[in-house]
Design a protein around this nucleic acid. Structure first.
Lengths: 229, 229
DNA sequence: CTTTTAAAAGTTGTAGGATGATTGGCATAT
DNA sequence: ATATGCCAATCATCCTACAACTTTTAAAAG
């Protein structure tokens, strides 16, 4: 059996080399990459070929071009941009269900793998959320609540789970923020967060999942209430 | 507050128009799209601009170009290709945990929303799996098992969940298929599948989730056993 | 008439050059 | 020191040409 000469076109070669440079950190996020002229010489391709490769990565969310200025690395995670665009067009309630699925699993895994650092971060978030709720500070409240949940997902030590969760929670909270801007009342479910924290600390998977489900149920109800306006 | 004039470059305009044509089904999956010359006239852009747009969609997995032949629509789901590439590079056990998360949630939602058609499809899959297991027919066994689980996810009626699950299960089963090709013994957990089916039919969310978890545990153990070689 | 072969047309891949649009920095003038 | 205008750098778009590959067509051979 002779393999079909799976020819790799120049554009693909260049694109995957650039991708490699980004993911390996040789071209750090936020920094400018060399101008087209240099890259043409570096990869020894024409301008068209190079630009097609760059355009592909721009569309994928890895790069960002600014006419007259240059091209910068926007992200090192190819999944983020695509997922975010997709989730943005999905129904909020569907997104919430998926978030529940991921975060419930994350809570169970976190109960297994949580480190001392994770636990202290979680405690700090709860503290910060309480203060923000008392002061009526929306922004700080949302920020520390996000960090609490992100910490749980991070503690799961499952990179795929982390990468899927990240864009999802961004979208959900941007909705929430829009809604809250209309001066809606909000209440911090401190006891629930504390119970969840304790379950993870005590490595009790079942309890952790259960409290997470309770929290999501309340969040869902709150969002639906807010959406009625 | 003056908004930054978010200028939309030609390439992006063309790319998003093509995306639209694909997602709306005007350019069906598997069919050829018009050649570059026609598209240049259609969108009134130069060949370079058009090609950059097409290249972006090729990289995203929506299109596929074949030199000398033409360009065909490869997929109407922008998420699929990116996710698949990503999952392929993830650890199998991490992927399994995420799959468990999604499918457990799917089972609960399916218990709520399942239709009569879903139920009969599920029954047919169980029947087909049993026959395949008795005859030792690997391919049919895997095919009908996949269809069983896909049907559950479809029955959840959550499009985001479906789109996330699809590439995941493909990767997992391609692993399984590779492993099974080495003449490994396999056993069909019929009773478990039946219980899961009954729970969904009876709209018992808790039972459905529980049986799904049991199944995933067994699948995980089997895969780990196979991977030891 | 059928099959084989070769030419031609069609299509995407790559190259190179030219011009327009935007940005950022530099030098000049106030 | 600040403001203005000029200039260079950089990306965006367009154009033409040729190469590589595929499909179709037509001619040639049997």
């Amino acid at each position: 059996m002779i393999h079909k000469t799976n020819r790799m076109y120049l554009v693909e070669q260049v694109a995957s080399q650039i991708e490699q440079l980004i993911e390996s950190g040789h071209w750090p996020v936020g920094e400018k990459i060399p101008p087209e002229m240099e890259l043409m010489n570096l990869f020894d391709v024409s301008r068209n070929t190079l630009r097609e490769a760059i355009r592909a990565l721009v569309h994928a969310g890895l790069l960002e071009t600014k006419q007259g200025s240059g091209t910068i690395v926007r992200s090192a995670n190819p999944l983020g941009a695509t997922l975010k665009r997709y989730i943005k067009r999905s129904a909020l309630l569907e997104t919430l269900d998926v978030r529940l699925a991921l975060e419930k699993q994350a809570a169970q895994l976190a109960a297994e793998h949580r480190t001392a650092t994770d636990l202290s971060t979680l405690e700090a978030c709860i503290q910060s959320s309480r203060e923000a709720a008392e002061n009526g500070d929306y922004e700080q409240f949302i920020a520390s609540d996000i960090r609490f949940h992100q910490t749980i997902v991070q503690a799961s030590a499952n990179q795929l789970l982390i990468d899927l969760y990240e864009p999802m929670v961004e979208i959900v909270y941007s909705f929430v923020q829009d809604l809250m801007a209309m001066d809606a009342p909000f209440k911090y479910e401190e006891e629930l967060h504390l119970e969840l924290f304790r379950a993870i600390r005590n490595q009790d998977k079942v309890e952790a999942a259960s409290y997470m489900e309770d929290y999501m149920k309340i969040l869902r109800e709150n969002i639906m209430k807010l959406m009625e306006d």
